[in-house]
Amino acid sequence: MTVKQTATAGTTESSDIMITLKPNDSGIEVELDSNVKKQFGDHINALIKDILQKLSIDNVKVEAVDKGALDCTIKARTIAAAYRLRGESDYEWEAINSWND
């Protein structure tokens, strides 16, 4: 499997979020564009970072274009983008589901 340099998941339709992952030298850096950034910006950033850390992705730049997505959508899009970045398609559902406990 080839590891790509960049991966995207999601759209810019209403209630969705488009997550794009790019290489970064150190750490997770989130660049968020959202109409509700003022209200939920910190929460969305923390959520995306948390998911990526759980997937052991440590060095990545995240571009998030949010159109009012719910947490479940943000999670799903972030997970999908991360798997695409690694070129994997066998989702570890058990591990992912356990995050909800």
Binding site: Q5, T8, T12, E13, K67
Partner: peptide
């Protein structure tokens, strides 16, 4: 515009443009 752009981006991704 989002629908149109989304469809075009999908096409570009399918054509392996990054």
């Amino acid at each position: 515009l989002a629908k149109i752009t989304g469809a075009l981006l999908e096409r570009l991704t399918a054509d392996r443009f990054e």
